[in-house]
């Protein structure tokens, strides 16, 4: 049976992601774009994510210990300036109190969550198949299949997976939702137990709800019908999310506008002839070829202009 199945559908079994446009996903390819010029780094998205997805607030000590559960984190980078060799400048440098930071540049920041790679390095290494590529282009995580080998996290170049080091709902020890805080848990989302890996799901509970609705009405999900929690909370509207295959979608238009092709690891965005719109789109660690589904729009700074 399986052999017959194998021989009949052979070509289908040899398809690989990323499809590169020739063979799209089955109606859906969820993707995101984050405009760093609009983003203020206010952390609202992160907070919304905590609320929506029942993330454990682990506390200061465990946070400093690297055990935090922030699916969406705002990373902060400071510009390092080399220490001046000229003694006069060195005095000024030390006196300014800037230390190693470059104060007028300020911090760079970057909201980063699971990039839902088309060729995700985490998927292939999971021994039990707890993380897979879904047909709508999401990198799924199956909590009750996970055995906690943490290989996915080792192989994730962005390190955006988070491991449940403790049982955060255990009333005896690590209860982070004591009464009545447990009332605010989102009933649509599991509270994960100790020993499983978790990560951003693109708010899959919301996606599935609208996709079921759309299917009963025999159509695809419309643009604007679903929002992720972070997108909803972003006061500046820096995050756009949607079905990339939908020609109306804002995110699909942005990707095309920025000349970022999901199936390429080297973008030809700067080679458009006669196209003067500045191309700001980029993806993180594209050279490792995970083909991430999240595009960032470069932050243009006054000093760099």
């Amino acid at each position: 049976m399986s052999i017959a199945n194998l021989l009949q559908n052979w070509s289908r079994y040899r398809d690989t992601h990323p499809y590169g446009g020739a063979k799209p996903h089955m109606g859906y390819k969820w993707a995101m774009a984050i405009d760093m010029d609009i983003c203020t780094g206010c952390n609202a998205c992160s907070v919304a994510c905590y609320a929506e997805n029942n993330l454990a607030v682990v506390g200061k000590e465990k946070f400093l210990n690297g055990k935090s559960m922030h699916w969406l984190r705002i990373e902060r980078y400071w510009h390092d300036t080399p220490e001046p060799t000229d003694p006069l400048q060195l005095t000024a440098y030390t006196a300014s109190g800037a230390g190693k930071h470059f104060p007028d540049q300020g911090a760079h920041f970057l909201p980063i969550m699971c990039q839902h790679c088309e060729a995700a390095p985490c998927e292939t290494v999971c021994p039990v198949g707890a993380t897979n590529h879904t047909q709508d282009g999401i990198n799924s995580q199956i909590y009750n299949r996970c055995v906690g080998s943490r290989y996915c996290l080792v192989n994730c170049p962005y390190k955006v997976r988070y491991f449940n080091w403790y049982n955060y709902q255990d009333p005896a020890t690590e209860n982070v939702w004591p009464e009545p805080l447990n009332q605010q848990l989102n009933p649509d989302v599991t509270v994960r137990s100790k020993g499983v890996m978790e990560k951003c799901t693109f708010c899959v509970q919301r996606l599935r709800a609208v996709m079921v609705d759309a299917r009963t009405e025999e159509r695809l999900v419309r643009e604007g019908e679903v929002q992720t929690a972070c997108q909803q909370a972003c006061m500046a509207g820096a995050i756009s999310f949607g079905n990339m295959l939908n020609p109306d979608s804002r995110v699909g238009k942005q990707w095309i506008e920025q000349g970022v092709n999901i199936a390429l690891d080297v973008q030809s965005k700067n080679e458009h002839v006669g196209d003067n719109t500045p191309k700001r789109g980029y993806r993180i660690l594209e050279n490792l070829r995970p083909y991430p589904s999240v595009m960032y729009l470069e932050q243009v700074r006054e000093s760099s202009v």
Partner: peptide, 11 residues
């Protein structure tokens, strides 16, 4: 208690 007591981190 959970693997946290072995003092590893998400890195």
């Amino acid at each position: 208690t959970g693997l946290g007591v072995s003092n590893k981190s998400n890195t």
